[in-house]
């Protein structure tokens, strides 16, 4: 910059630090609460420094769950969330990359119709069609199953568009050269397009994993069997303990566990995450 304004730089740092602190505050409070025994919560206000019960609390929720709310072990919920998130991420990428390939590289009847059918899903988030979608899943006998948790969320216009846009930027010469060398459409896809799309796939995977992990409404509807509860919706059930104050120390330990995997993904794969987020909105 052409000018030097030290006070403004100091102010900028101060504002940013304040922003970072406010961002971190809820997590700090949750972490502190998750390290205390249950009776420190009854003293009238939450403590501000960690207590000594961290290992016990986390071991309890992972192994046996929150007793007061009669919940299943959080370990099982973590597993369910992981399976659901992976199925959604992998499934979305797989079906949309082949659909985009067909739409870009082939001419076939109803190609435009297919394109528009996929395009329309962009406008129909699951929240606006919950009852009828639930009806379909129930009649297909997919309630309380990993398929029911993931398949209805798998169709995605955004992923298909991302791959379509990317394929359109791939030079024509590559397809021509492949054809002259005698490669068929499947070989061209596997040996040329897939390796070229690697970064896009990885970036999309990061975004979709977070999307899948954080699903709330859908798991709430299709799981009545506790064995299929995912962690994000499981927390809500823990808050509904019938008789007393919720077991805050255990609920906060569960919340920490629910946040950990997607937050780690964002922090450690930040470059891919930023790329995925920005590409998705183009």
């Amino acid at each position: 910059m052409v000018e030097n304004r030290p006070w403004l730089t100091v102010l900028s740092h101060a504002v940013l630090c304040l922003g970072v602190l406010v961002t971190a505050l809820p997590i700090w409070i949750a972490f502190v609460a998750s390290t205390h025994p249950s009776d420190s919560m009854l003293s009238g206000r939450t403590p501000l420094l960690p207590g000594g019960n961290m290992l016990e609390n986390y071991a309890t929720v992972l192994g046996t769950g929150v007793k007061a709310a009669g919940s299943i072990p959080v370990g099982t919920m973590l597993w369910n969330s992981l399976v659901m998130a992976l199925m959604i991420a992998v499934g979305k990428i797989a079906i949309s990359i082949i659909a985009a390939y067909a739409i870009v590289y082939f001419r076939f009847p109803l190609r435009k119709t297919c394109f528009w059918v996929i395009f329309i899903t962009l406008m129909l988030p699951v929240e606006v069609r919950i009852l009828p979608t639930f009806g379909v899943v129930a009649s297909l006998d997919m309630l309380n199953s990993y398929w029911g948790l993931s398949v209805p969320l798998i169709a995605s216009a955004t992923a298909t568009f991302l791959f379509r846009q990317f394929f359109l930027t791939v030079p024509e010469e590559l397809a021509e050269a492949a054809r002259i060398d005698g490669a068929g459409p499947l070989k061209f896809f596997r040996d040329i397009l897939l390796p070229l799309s690697r970064t896009n796939i990885a970036a999309l995977f990061v975004i979709l994993f977070i999307y899948g992990w954080n699903q709330y409404l859908w798991p709430l509807l299709v799981t009545t069997d506790e064995g299929f509860y995912t962690i994000v919706m499981g927390i809500q059930r823990m808050l509904q303990a019938e008789d007393a104050e919720p077991a805050w120390h255990e609920i906060m330990a569960t919340s920490m566990l629910a946040m950990l995997p997607p937050v780690l993904v964002v922090v450690f794969m930040q470059r891919l995450f930023v790329k995925g987020l920005i590409e998705q909105e183009k």
Binding site: I95, A102, Y105, I118, I120, V136, V151, A175, G184
Partner: peptide, 28 residues
Amino acid sequence: VVFSKLGLPILLVAPQIIITLVFFIWPA
């Protein structure tokens, strides 16, 4: 430059179209 086959592209778009029809268009 496009490939001129008929069966293959239909097979490739089928999964997405079926899921879209069953879980999006029909419920909507």
